[in-house]
Design a protein around this nucleic acid. Structure first.
Length: 520
DNA sequence: TCTTATT
């Protein structure tokens, strides 16, 4: 099959001849054969303990090769390569032989999760000589598959070398029969294409979309102008989509929304700030993940979205001065009044992580929670949080959040809640005129309680009701919420109308007065 | 209809 990648120098790659036998032995896949190379002799974990590498505090390991000459200086124009599709059991020392054959290595670093130390399946590689990088890319990129991987190894300049984001296009509404070559031909007239990938499912079938990376932003823009909406592919439901691909940030948000939709039970209010404060949120997410990991020793990685959602719930709740006592536990656990003792809190905070990851409970201490209250930032405060307060408040949010959904996200473990449960009377009370909301497109999983939690950040909810189908006992995906004042209702409309959960958007509007006759 | 990862 034709290849459509180019080297970083902008020149088309040579057609790749079959790999030299001694190298192909390193790989699985067609043509691979049993051999004695270390890459196929996958060492067991315990064997690593005999090999010592310097291990910095951040958990990342890297090899700086100091050859006999003592010279591992790199060229001024050296290229840092990104290496992808590396089996997670291969470390720097295992990879080194593979790459050394193209030249002297200046630095090789397997990427690890900052907090868990988990191998990310990729690495950075810098050769001393620029030429070595080009040779390695030509010889290896997409050419072979390392043992245990299902996709071929990636060897290409790291993002830091090129800043690819603003010249990469997402192409949607393709015909599923269209191949990389078809897409390439389509975009070729508008510039130099460095990368052209049709997205495929596990079965290899096209998902009807592709990424096309041009060598410049201007070329990419001209392709958009020329091609977006220009034609409708046979079998596509609308005309061709050509736009700049999502940034990492956008991808993170997209994944979050998918997760929210998937889990359904999560309070959508918590993700609101992403529409307006996404970079702020992003920064917080990093820090939050760090603290979560440091204090929980959990396996949650920064790319997991949940810590962030917890943060934002905090913002929403605290700014409304909502006391945690107004949250209704649904676990059925009853507990005597306790002071906010740290001994009680960790068991509440920790399992929520487990709820996401399926890890067993870790009933260890949680010092960070002390800081929340020691700082005087009780959730009773009606003040807006300052940026400096936010992280500490986050733990209040974790706590509140956990109190909200223990039955669905946690295994009840019989620990005391930090506050006595104060159950709100769930009568179907209507508020004054202008205080009653009609909510449509609720997630199927939402019950009265989830509905209430969703709207609590905006004020005092005096009633919440999800309508159920009598026959099936399933939610009809709409309901009513009543506040005790019209301002809360308006705030809720402002914030929540159109809020996306999964594939749906909430419809939040004032409930039609009884005397009106128009159906919804 | 937004990939398998980018210190």
């Amino acid at each position: 099959m034709a290849r459509f990648t180019q080297t970083e120098s902008g020149k088309p790659q040579q057609p790749q001849q079959p790999h030299p036998a001694h190298t192909s032995l390193l790989f699985t896949g067609p043509g691979a054969a049993p051999n004695q190379h270390p890459l196929l002799l996958i060492p067991h974990q315990h064997q690593y303990s005999q090999i010592t590498f310097p291990k910095p505090m951040n958990g990342s390991e890297s090899i700086s090769i100091h050859p006999e000459s003592g010279n591992n200086m790199k060229d001024q124009d050296a290229i840092k390569l990104f290496i992808g599709q590396i089996p997670r059991n291969l470390e720097e020392k295992d990879l080194k032989p593979l790459f050394e054959q193209f030249g002297k290595i200046h630095e090789l670093t397997v990427l690890k999760d900052r907090y868990t130390g988990m191998h990310k399946g990729c690495a950075f590689l810098t050769y001393c000589a620029r030429e070595s990088a080009i040779k390695a890319q030509n010889a290896l990129h997409e050419q072979k598959t390392l043992p245990g991987m299902t996709r071929p190894i990636q060897v290409k300049p790291a993002d830091s070398e090129s800043r690819g984001e603003d010249r990469k296009l997402f192409v949607g509404m393709l015909n599923k029969q269209q191949t990389e070559e078809d897409v390439y031909r389509l975009f070729e007239p508008y510039g130099v294409i460095e990368e052209c990938t049709v997205l495929r499912g596990p079965d290899g079938n096209s998902k009807g979309c592709a990424f096309v990376k041009f060598s410049t932003h201007v070329e990419a823009q001209s392709a958009i102008s020329a091609l977006h909406g220009s034609q409708t592919m046979p079998g596509a439901s609308s005309s061709l989509v050509v736009k700049f691909a999502d940034t990492d940030k956008e991808r993170t948000i997209r994944r979050m929304q998918q997760m929210v939709g998937q889990f359904g039970i999560f309070n959508p209010a918590i993700a609101l700030p992403f529409s307006t404060y996404s970079s702020y949120a992003n920064a917080l997410m990093q820090q939050q993940a760090a603290i979560m990991a440091a204090t929980h020793g959990s396996y949650m990685t920064p790319s997991v979205a949940f810590p962030t959602t917890q943060i934002h719930q905090v913002g929403a709740l605290s700014m409304n001065g909502l006391p945690p006592t107004s949250l209704t536990p649904v676990s059925g656990l009853s507990s005597p009044p306790t002071s906010i003792a740290t001994s009680a809190v960790p068991s509440i905070v920790t399992p929520i992580v487990n709820g996401f990851t399926g890890l067993p409970p870790q009933p260890n201490g949680h010092p960070a929670v002390e800081a929340v209250y020691a700082n005087g930032l009780s959730p009773y405060s009606g003040q807006s949080p300052t940026a400096a307060d936010t992280l500490q408040q986050a733990f209040t949010g974790v706590q509140q959040y956990t109190a909200i959904y223990p039955a669905t996200t946690l295994t009840p473990i019989g620990q005391a809640l930090p506050q006595p449960a104060q159950v709100i009377q769930q009568q179907q009370r209507e508020g004054p005129e202008g205080c009653n909301l009609f909510i449509y497109h609720l997630p199927q999983e939402f019950g009265d309680n989830e509905l209430m939690q969703t709207f609590l950040p905006f004020g005092t909810v005096i009633s919440s009701k999800v309508f159920m189908d009598r026959a099936t006992n399933q939610s009809k995906c709409f309901g009513f919420v009543s506040f005790d004042n019209p301002a809360s209702a308006q705030a809720a409309i402002q914030a929540m109308n159109g809020f996306q959960i999964g594939m749906k958007r909430l419809k939040v509007q004032l409930k039609r007065p009884k005397d009106a006759s128009r159906p919804y």
